[in-house]
Design a protein around this nucleic acid. Structure first.
Length: 481
RNA sequence: GGUGACAUAGCCAAGCGGUAAGGCCGAGGUCUGCAAAACCUCUAUUCCCCAGUUCGAUUCUGGGUGUCACCUCCA
């Protein structure tokens, strides 16, 4: 039984899908005005695992994620460069996809864009006006928070409290300072669309309401994003959507919010300019390492980024991957001659049950990954005993254990790419695999003749070229440093 | 000012009423011609502090201290 922490109720609750066997999720995407930073990546990696989990459990998942491709920051960037807004948004949407691909983030089913849903948005705004929840003011349209008695239920704030502490400059024309824009009239030089209220463009929150309702229906399962979106973004989405539907229990049923990635214990954000972009970090570390770094911590906990932490993640992931390689190699290299080690399969089933129990508890990837380490040790121990002692090999049961390990890796989304960083000499003046194999063969001869000097000379020579040799009873393996 | 979250070994991180998972680093050992990898052993009488509830609390309650976040664009 899956339990998830719902921001709306502030507690863990059992997940009951709207439609049995199906899951609808809307994840707030990015505003493409810059490269994604590592903090931006957290929700997408998190939701990718959630999606993988549901698919593994046999659910039919519909995942919608928007691009807010029209907004003040995009306009500003476009004006600075003297180009059209679409040039900016297209560029960073491309960057977003490149980054996510390297983090093994599978594609959503649909990536709706604001600019392609203007008429839907206008219709929704009009409906809110017609229903008495919104009002027009000189070309702008505002949502009247006082008309929605449940305003504040997601973030747990009262309207009075917010007004007391508001630090924003208040537009005196608004009925209530907290009223927010559904439609903004165009200022000179800004892009605009024609509307019943004149030339303008959508406010910030309306696009997510419109697009989620359009693609997932009035009531759907999950809505997610970073916890900084709880207020005002998601609070406002709830207000708009539920008032539009006339049902205060409609819209997303489970609200999941991930914690921040901090740097030096401060929130990483574009406005503080203390962020590290994903493209930059990918120049130094493989995507899977970055992904693993994110998943080692529960998604709701804060996560501090530093070189030390990412190196730890790298060492840990390498350990898991080495076990996978060791096990895979054993399966490929040897024929089985016994079926006595039933304990292998039993332990595997136990580990898999533990793994899913962890995932069922609000997607506890940190705990789940812990169980992968337990299996890794079991794989290594067994492989070692078979190779070193040339003992019996229960290929069937060991294979089952490897299948379980693989299934875990598929949910977490690792072992899909290389853990090696591309180097400059790749494909050029670097040593070829054939040459390496030839040297290994020569070294094997030298070892046979107990010519240790020559054997070590070859090994050191290869090491100088970034090739590490590992001897074992099964032969010599090589890998890049 | 309002609201919320968090505080577990050198570092990271699970657990959240029954006596501290896991990873990284470090030390010793096994294997090996030597390495590497792997494996084994060791590394928190204790979970920020103080009260309380309880047979029993890291886990619950109250109070402190500290850190962070939201209330303004932000994943």
């Amino acid at each position: 039984m899956l339990k998830v922490y719902n921001t709306l109720t502030r507690k863990k609750q059992e997940f009951v899908p709207q439609e049995p066997g199906k899951v609808g999720m809307y994840v707030c995407g990015v505003t493409p005005y810059n490269h994604p930073h590592i903090g931006n990546a957290r929700p997408f990696v998190t939701w990718d695992v959630i999606k993988r989990y549901f698919r593994k459990k046999g659910f039919e998942v519909k995942h919608i994620q928007n691009f807010t491709d029209m907004d003040d920051k995009i306009i500003k960037a476009a004006n600075t460069e003297g180009v059209d807004c679409s040039v900016i948004s297209e560029r960073y949407i491309k960057s977003y996809f490149e980054a996510m691909d390297k983090l093994n983030v599978q594609r959503a089913d649909l990536y709706p864009k604001v600019t392609e849903h203007i008429s839907d948005i206008i219709a929704m705004v009009q409906k809110l006006i017609d229903n008495g929840y919104a009002y027009e003011l000189e070309g702008d349209v505002y949502f009247s928070v006082e008309k929605f008695p449940e305003y504040g239920k997601l973030s747990g704030r009262k309207l009075e409290d917010m007004q007391a502490g508001a630090r924003v400059e208040v537009d005196q024309r608004k009925a209530n300072p907290m009223d927010f824009a559904l439609w903004k009239s165009a200022k000179p030089g800004e892009p605009f669309w024609e509307s019943p209220w004149g030339k303008g463009r959508p406010g910030w929150h309306i696009e997510c309401s419109t697009m989620s309702l359009k693609y997932l229906g009035e009531t759907f399962d999950f809505h997610g994003g970073g916890s900084d979106l709880i207020f005002p973004h998601h609070e406002n989405e709830i207000a708009q959507s539920q008032c539009c539907c006339g049902n205060y229990h409609s819209f997303a049923q489970y609200w999941l919010h991930n914690g921040f990635i901090t740097i030096d214990n401060e929130k990483m954000s574009k406005s503080l300019n203390n962020f590290i972009t994903v493209p930059d970090i990918l120049k130094l570390y493989p995507g899977e390492v970055v992904r693993f770094f994110i998943l080692r911590t529960h998604y709701r906990s804060p996560l501090d980024f530093s070189e030390e932490r990412i190196k730890e993640a790298q060492a840990g992931l390498l350990r898991l991957k080495t076990a996978y390689d060791n096990g895979q190699e054993l399966l490929e290299a040897r024929e089985g001659n016994t079926e006595n080690d039933v304990l292998l399969a039993e332990n595997a089933q136990k580990a898999l049950a533990d793994f899913y129990e962890a995932m069922d508890d609000d997607f506890n990837t940190a705990l789940a990954i812990g169980y992968m380490f337990t299996l890794a040790k079991e794989i290594n121990t067994y492989a070692n005993s078979v190779i070193n002692h040339k003992g019996d090999f229960d290929k069937k049961h060991f294979g089952q254990l490897m299948d379980v390990y693989n299934e875990m890796a598929e949910v977490i989304g690792i072992f899909e790419g290389s853990l090696e960083m591309p180097t400059e000499d790749d494909g050029k003046d670097g040593i070829s695999p054939e040459e390496i194999e030839a040297l290994i063969a020569e070294r094997a001869e030298a070892k046979k003749a107990k010519n240790w000097a020559r054997a070590d000379e070859i090994r050191d020579g290869l090491k100088a070229q970034g090739i590490i040799l590992e001897d074992s009873a099964a032969g010599t393996k090589w890998k890049k440093a």
